Amino acid sequence: MQASFGEIQKIVDHIETNFDREITAHEIELLSHYSYRNFQRVFFKIFNETVSGFQKRLKLENSYKKLIYTEDKISEIAWQVGYDNIQSFSKAFKKQFSVSPVEARKQKQDVFRQFIENGSPNLKFEIKYKDEVIVYCKFIKTKDYHNAEIDALWKEIEPEDEIFESAYGIIHDQPLITNRFHCRYGAAVTYDNDLKGFLKKEIFGRKYVKFTHYGLYEHILGTYRSFYRFWLSEQSLLLDNSDVIEEYTETESGEKVTHIYFPLYE
C-alpha cells in the first residue's frame, strides 16, 4: 500500500473528531479506500501504535484534561469520552496513568509543578471569541514539541518568501499528559485556493483565553509556564480539552509575536 501522509492525516483527523465513539473497520475502509488490514500497517508504521490503541489513548488523555481543566463529575467525563460506566473507565484510566481519576483530579497541581516552578507570575490576558477560520494543515509527530522539528516543517511549507496570509500552530496534545513521543503539531495556513498535500479544516469558532509571547519561538515555554501559574491560581477559569492554537505574526518593527489561544470550557 502506498499512501501519502496527507491521506493518513485525513483519517487521523476523523478519528480525533470522533474519539468518543466506536469507529469501525468498514468506516475506515470507506474513508481511506484501502483494506483495513493494509491501512493498519501504514498507520502503525507512521504512528507506532494501532488505530484502536490510538483511539483508546485519545479517550483517556482527553478525560485527563477534563479532570484537571473542568469541574465536571467523573461519571460525566467517563460518558463524555465514550465509556458506558465509571468502573470500566476508572480501570482503563488507572492502567494508563497509574493513578485513579479521583487521585488525578486531587493531584492536578503536581502535574504542573515541575514545569511551572521557574515561571514568572506576571501575565496579561484577555477573554475573546474567535470566529472560525478555514486553514490548510500539515502535521508531524514531534518529541516534546521539539522546536527544530517544528522549524523544519515550516521551512518545508514556506522555504522562501512568505506566501500565505496567516499562519497558525495547532497544539493537539498536552505534553504533561501525553507520552513525549506521541505529541502532534500542525502547521496551518490560510490560502485562497485548495493546497495539494494539505488537510483542509476549520479552527477557532469558540471562546478562548488569549495571551501573548513576544520574541523568538524557542523561548515560548517560559510564556506557557507563566500561563499555567496564573491558571492554577485562578480557580474560576475552566479550560476545554480541545486544541490550543498559536497565531504567528510580528510587530511593525519586525519583532516576532505569538498569540496563544487556550479554549475555554463552555
Rank of each mutant, 00 (worst) to 15 (best):
P175L: 01
Q2V: 15
A78E: 06
K56N: 06
D20G: 06
C183R: 08
F5K: 04
K66T: 05
P159Q: 05
E16K: 08
N48L: 12
K66A: 06
K207Q: 14
S32T: 00
N241I: 13
E76R: 12
T212I: 06
K155C: 08
K155Q: 13
S35M: 11
R229I: 15
L216A: 15
E247W: 04
Y217F: 15
E132L: 02
G169T: 09
Y224A: 07
S75K: 10
V42F: 04
S90Y: 03
S100H: 08
Q9E: 15
K128T: 11
L216N: 12
R225N: 10
Y145P: 10
P175G: 00
V135C: 13
E61I: 05
W231E: 10
I163V: 08
E103C: 01
R206L: 15
I28P: 03
E76V: 13
D151R: 14
A3L: 03
E7N: 07
I8G: 00
F43P: 02
Y265C: 06
W154L: 04
S32R: 00
Q9A: 11
K124H: 08
S63E: 05
D240P: 07
A152S: 11
T142M: 03
S253D: 12
K196R: 10
N118D: 09
V51E: 00
V244W: 11
Q40E: 13
Y224F: 14
K200Y: 05
V189C: 00
F164N: 00
D110N: 13
F139G: 01
W231Y: 08
K155I: 02
E126F: 13
E16F: 04
A104Q: 11
S226A: 10
Y261Q: 12
G119A: 07
V99H: 01
E126Y: 14
F139N: 03
F44W: 13
G53K: 07
T249D: 11
V81W: 02
R41F: 06
W79E: 15
S233P: 10
N38R: 13
L264V: 12
I163Y: 08
D151S: 14
D72R: 12
P121R: 05
S100Q: 07
A92H: 05
T178Y: 00
K45P: 03
Y248F: 14
G186D: 08
I260Q: 04
E61N: 12
G119V: 08
N122V: 14
Y83G: 01
L60Q: 00
E218F: 11
K45C: 11
A148H: 14
Y261V: 07
Y34N: 02
S226D: 02
H259T: 06
F19M: 05
Q40F: 10
E158G: 03
D84N: 10
E156W: 06
S226Y: 00
E16L: 10
F115S: 05
D243L: 04
F227G: 01
K73V: 05
F5C: 10
T142Q: 01
E266T: 13
F198A: 01
Y168T: 07
L195M: 09
I77V: 02
K45Q: 14
R184C: 01
T142F: 04
H219S: 14
V102E: 09
I150N: 07
V42K: 03
